[in-house]
């Protein structure tokens, strides 16, 4: 098993977090959040990979055929579904922030601090 997918997952995660921390635009920030999220897909799929394994579709396949782990793929799908809701909500909030404040720079909306 190669080390590379794990390194890429860690790298994508850090890139996404860097984007969130430095973001000056809420839509950009939401996208960075999805980038962080894609690192979890990479990690899950890398964990379930089996060398030489085919897709985990068992219809019409001979018994004993090697496939990759279907569980992590199910987890990934659930993760996508759940997180799309969050991203949609953040984008909707960004839209309303723009309506109220005329800007979507998180540094300029400081209703609250301290």
């Amino acid at each position: 098993m190669s080390f590379l997918p794990y390194a890429v997952a860690a790298w994508v995660c850090v890139v996404g977090l860097y984007g969130i921390v430095t973001s000056r635009n809420l839509i950009h920030l939401a996208l960075c959040l999805t980038i962080t999220q894609s690192s979890t897909y990479l990690l899950l799929l890398a964990i379930g990979y089996v060398k030489g394994g085919g897709p985990p579709i068992f219809k019409g396949v001979k018994l004993g055929t090697t496939t990759v782990d279907p569980v992590v793929q199910a987890l990934t799908l659930t993760d996508i579904v759940v997180s799309v809701t969050v991203i949609a909500l953040i984008l909707a909030l960004a839209l309303d922030v723009h309506k109220q404040a005329g800007t979507i720079d998180p540094d300029e909306i400081r209703e609250m601090s301290g």
Partner: peptide, 13 residues
């Protein structure tokens, strides 16, 4: 209102 929006975004992210 802007306050609830800021609070909700911070909370969500």
């Amino acid at each position: 209102e802007l306050g609830p929006l800021q609070g909700a975004v911070n909370f969500a992210v």
